[in-house]
Amino acid sequence: MTTVRYTKEHEWVRMEGDIATVGITDHAQEALGDVVFVELPEAGREVEEGEACAVVESVKAASDVYSPLAGTIVEPNQAIVDDPAMVNREATSGAWFFKLKLANASDFDGLMDEAGYNAFLETL
């Protein structure tokens, strides 16, 4: 069984074993507009919770993507570097940003569930 959780920075995190896959939410891709450039962290990089480690740029602006939790990057998604528009087309599926081996797998439980994220969106 897989579970998806969310951050207030509009990232989604899906756990499979001890690997978290991280992407940006539909709300985020919609707010950004047409994505034209993505920069991702290299495999092996250690990141802190909340550390800016990727960049997503639309025609108009650049935005940071933060690591939702502490851990080690195990794989960046080269597909979205080669085709940034994928982020608009399939933000919550194929256009994941990176896979992260969590420093503490239990940290995942501290993130918002879908109901919590939807309630957070209502407050914006």
Binding site: G33, D34, V36, K60
Partner: peptide, 9 residues
Amino acid sequence: VQYPAGVLT
């Protein structure tokens, strides 16, 4: 700043 078609389109 844009309409539904988006800046690129």
